[in-house]
Design a protein around this nucleic acid. Structure first.
Length: 675
DNA sequence: GATCCTCGAGTTCT
DNA sequence: CTCGAGGATC
C-alpha cells in the first residue's frame, strides 16, 4: 500500500468520524467526545489534506468555509413555493383550525405533530446523491437567495447524509437559528470590540447568514433544525410527518428536540401551555408552536390556500416586543432633582404583563430616538423586566405629532430647570423646597438599604407631607401615635408598628446613615468607603475638600459635593436633630479581616443564601464585592444559571469558584473566634 | 488625553 | 437593566 493510499484511507476515516460526532452532537444531542478531541480530529484532517491536496473534496468537513466573497447572492427559484404558515393568537383560533381540518377530512380526531417555532431564518437545502448541493433563503417564498457557501459553514447541517436510503434528489426545509447562549456571547464580543450589538437572536441569525463572506458566517454560533420537505419523490414518503422527521434524523439532519405527536386539539393546547411555561428556560428564542396534521395523506387531501397550507398552523406566544402608541410624555422628578421623561403608553401586553409606561432615560435620548407624542413605537422589556421604547415607527407618525421639548422649569415646584455639566441631564434647582425632591429624599432615607424603616411607603409619605406632619427626615422621629391615627388606612395597630419600626431604625451603621442622608454622588459604596476611612461622623464633617480627595475613590467632584453638604446649615440642623432623637451606630471595631484587598463578583443564583447575604458576609471579612468582572477581580462565585460574567472571567483568567467552594471559604475564615 | 472600571441614579409591575 | 459620568490609570 502506497503512502498516499494510507493517507486516503485515513482521510476518509477521519471524515466519517467527524461526521459521526456532528451527528451525536447536533442530532442526538449526546456528544461522546470533548470539544478538544473534536478539534484534534479536525486538525489531523487539515494536516493530511494540506500534505495531499489531491484528497480534498468539496464535502470534506474542512471545506465548510470555502468560496471567496461574492458580489451578491444569486437568485434561486424554489421548485416548490416556500409558503408561510397561518397564525393563531388564541386558543379559540386553534380550535377553529382543528374544526376546519376535521370537517374537511370528515374524521373525529386528528393526530398532530407539535414542535416549537424558533425565531430564525427559513432555509431550503437541496441534497443530490446524498450531498448538500444548494442552500437558499426563503425570500418572498418563490424566489430566494443562494446562500450555499454560508449554510455549509453551519456544523449542524451535514455536507453528506448518513446511510443510503435517502432519495437521490430532495429538498429539506428548516430553520437556521442562533441559540441564546451563542447570541449573548456574540453580543458581548461585539460590544467589547466597539461594534453594534444585534437586537435579538433572529436578527443575529439573519445577519450572520446573509454575510457575503462565509468566513464571517463560520464564526457565528448558528444551528439548524429540519421541519419539512419541499421537493421529495412521492413514492418515497413515509406515512406520517413524524416518520419523515425520524428519517431526517437517521440521515443526520437535526430536528426539534421538543417534537411530539399529540392527539386532537386538546393535545395541541396542552403542549402549547407546557412549552410556554418552559419558555424562559429554553436555550433558544421561540415565538410559538407549530401544529401539523401528522398523516401525510391527509395533508395532501387538505391542500393549500393561496398563502399557506391548510394542514398546519403556528400558535404564537405573546410577544416580547410589541407596538403601541405614546399618549403623553411625562416628566418625573428624582431624589436629586433629575428630570426624567417617561412615555405614557396605550396599555399593551408585553411578555405577559400589561405595560403602560416606559422610561426614556433623559432628554438627549428622546431627541436621539425622536419620540413624539402620538408616535407609534416598538416597546420591549429590557432583560425581560423593564419596559423600554426600542424605536419609533416613522411611517406611522401622525401629522399632528409634536416633538417633546426639554422642560425649562420643574413640573412640580416650578423652579428653574438647569442642565447638568455633562449636558445630558436636566435638574430641578428647587432642592428640598421642591415637594417631589423632598418626598424622594424621605423615601430614600427609609429605604431598605438606608435606615430600613419598614412600613414607611410612598402612600404614607404622601400623607405625612400633605398634613404637614413632616418637613424633613428628622421630623419622622417626632411622630406620635395619635398623629398617625388621623391618617387614612392607619389603625392603632399599624401606627404602633410604624413607631416600632422607627424606633428600630435608630440603631444603624455609619455607612447606612451617610447613605441615607442622600449626599449627591454618595451611594452605598462611597458611603462605606467614607465610613471606613474616617471612622466617625465628626472626623468626616471636619474634613475639607483636599482631605476628602485623598481618599481612594473620591475625586474632586464627589469631594465638593460632600463638603458642600456639610456646610449647609439646614443639613447640620437635621443631623443634629437625628442624633438627639437617638439615631446611633457603633464605632466600627477592628475585627480580623482576612479577605482585605480581595474582590468578589457574583453571577447566577445562590441556593444557601441571597446575593445580598453573601455580599454582607464576605464584606464582613474585609473583601470588596463588585458588579462586573475585570482583571482586578479575585474570585467569581458562580451560582445556578450564570450570566455573561462567567465568560469574561474565563477569558481574563479570574479564579472561578462554585457555591460550595464559596461556602467552604466563608467557613474557613468565619469560624475562628466567632464560634 | 484617552480608556477602562465602577458607581450612582432612575426605572416597571405585581 | 441602562445610561451617564466620576475616578483611576497609563
Amino acid at each position: 500500500m502506497s503512502a498516499s493510499e494510507a493517507a486516503r484511507q485515513r482521510v476518509e476515516a477521519l471524515r466519517r468520524e467527524i461526521e459521526y460526532h456532528n451527528f451525536r452532537y447536533y442530532v442526538l444531542d449526546q456528544p461522546v467526545i470533548s470539544d478538544a478531541e473534536y478539534d484534534a480530529l479536525m486538525a489531523e484532517l487539515q494536516a493530511l489534506e494540506a500534505a495531499y491536496p489531491e484528497l480534498v473534496t468539496p464535502d470534506s468537513p474542512t471545506q465548510r468555509v470555502g468560496a471567496p466573497p461574492a458580489q451578491a447572492f444569486a437568485a434561486v427559484r424554489h421548485e416548490a413555493a416556500m409558503l408561510s404558515l397561518d397564525n393563531a393568537f388564541t386558543e379559540q383560533e386553534v380550535r377553529d383550525f382543528d374544526r376546519r381540518v376535521r370537517d374537511r377530512l370528515e374524521v373525529e380526531t386528528v393526530e398532530y405533530t407539535a414542535e416549537p417555532k424558533l425565531d430564525g431564518l427559513a432555509v431550503s437545502l437541496l441534497y443530490e446523491h446524498g450531498r448538500l448541493a444548494l442552500g437558499a433563503t426563503r425570500g418572498d417564498g418563490f424566489v430566494g437567495e443562494d446562500v450555499t457557501a454560508n449554510v455549509k459553514t453551519i456544523r449542524a447541517i451535514p455536507l453528506r447524509l448518513r446511510g443510503s436510503d435517502w432519495p437521490e434528489r430532495f429538498e429539506v426545509r428548516g430553520e437556521v437559528f442562533m441559540p441564546l447562549e451563542g447570541f449573548r456571547k456574540l453580543n458581548a464580543w461585539a460590544l467589547e470590540h466597539g461594534e453594534k450589538a444585534f437586537a435579538n437572536p433572529r436578527n443575529a441569525a439573519a445577519g450572520s447568514l446573509r454575510q457575503l463572506d462565509p468566513g464571517v458566517t463560520a464564526k457565528r454560533p448558528l444551528e439548524f433544525y429540519a421541519y419539512g420537505v419541499g421537493f421529495f419523490p412521492k413514492q418515497r414518503l413515509p406515512e406520517t410527518q413524524a416518520g419523515l422527521l425520524a428519517c431526517f434524523k437517521e440521515w443526520g439532519l437535526p430536528v426539534a428536540r421538543e417534537l411530539k405527536v399529540v392527539s386532537g386539539v386538546e393535545g395541541c393546547l396542552e403542549y402549547y401551555r407546557d412549552l410556554l411555561a418552559r419558555r424562559p428556560s429554553l436555550p433558544f428564542e421561540a415565538d410559538g408552536v407549530v401544529y401539523k396534521v401528522n398523516r401525510l395523506a391527509w395533508q395532501e387531501r387538505l391542500g393549500y390556500t393561496a398563502r399557506a397550507p391548510r394542514w398546519a398552523i403556528a400558535h404564537k406566544f405573546p410577544p416580547h416586543e410589541v407596538t403601541t402608541v405614546v399618549e403623553a410624555v411625562e416628566v418625573q422628578v428624582g431624589r436629586t432633582g433629575i428630570l426624567t421623561p417617561v412615555a405614557k403608553l396605550k396599555p399593551v401586553p408585553v411578555g405577559g404583563v400589561v405595560v403602560s409606561s416606559a422610561t426614556l432615560h433623559n432628554f438627549e435620548e428622546v431627541k436621539r430616538k425622536d419620540v413624539r407624542v402620538g408616535d407609534t413605537v416598538i416597546v420591549r422589556r429590557a432583560g425581560d423586566v423593564i419596559p423600554e421604547v426600542v424605536k419609533v415607527i416613522p411611517e406611522k407618525r401622525p401629522l399632528a405629532a409634536r416633538p417633546v421639548e426639554p422642560p425649562t422649569r420643574c413640573p412640580v415646584c416650578g423652579a428653574e430647570a438647569v442642565a447638568d455639566p455633562g449636558g445630558a441631564l436636566i435638574r430641578c434647582s428647587g432642592g428640598l423646597y421642591c415637594p417631589a425632591q423632598l418626598k424622594a429624599a424621605l423615601k430614600h432615607f427609609a429605604s431598605r438599604r438606608a435606615l430600613d424603616i419598614e412600613g414607611l411607603g410612598e402612600k404614607l409619605i404622601d400623607q405625612l407631607l400633605e398634613k404637614g406632619l413632616v418637613k424633613d427626615v428628622a421630623d419622622l422621629y417626632s411622630l406620635r401615635p395619635e398623629q398617625l391615627a388621623e391618617l387614612e388606612r392607619m389603625g392603632a395597630k399599624s401606627a404602633q408598628n410604624l413607631i416600632q419600626a422607627l424606633e428600630g431604625s435608630k440603631s444603624t451603621t455609619l455607612a447606612r446613615f451617610l447613605f441615607a442622608l442622600g449626599i449627591r454622588e454618595v451611594g452605598e459604596v462611597t458611603a462605606q468607603i467614607l465610613a471606613e476611612h474616617f471612622g466617625s461622623l465628626e472626623k468626616l464633617m471636619a474634613a475639607d475638600e483636599s482631605e476628602l480627595e485623598q481618599v481612594p475613590g473620591i475625586g474632586p467632584v464627589v469631594a465638593k459635593h460632600i463638603a458642600a453638604f456639610f456646610r449647609q446649615p439646614h443639613n447640620l440642623n437635621v443631623i443634629e436633630r437625628l442624633r438627639r432623637a437617638g439615631v446611633h451606630w457603633q464605632t466600627p471595631q477592628a475585627e480580623p479581616r482576612p479577605l482585605v484587598g480581595k474582590t468578589f463578583v457574583f453571577t447566577g443564583a445562590l441556593t444557601a443564601m441571597t446575593r445580598d447575604q453573601a455580599k454582607a458576609r464576605v464584606e464582613a471579612l474585609g473583601a470588596r464585592v463588585s458588579e462586573s468582572v475585570s482583571r482586578a477581580t479575585d474570585y467569581l462565585v458562580v451560582g445556578a444559571a450564570p450570566g455573561a460574567k462567567l465568560d469574561k472571567a474565563r477569558r481574563l483568567g479570574v479564579t472561578i469558584i462554585d457555591e460550595q467552594e464559596f461556602l467552604t471559604l466563608l467557613h474557613q475564615f468565619e469560624a475562628p473566634g466567632r464560634g
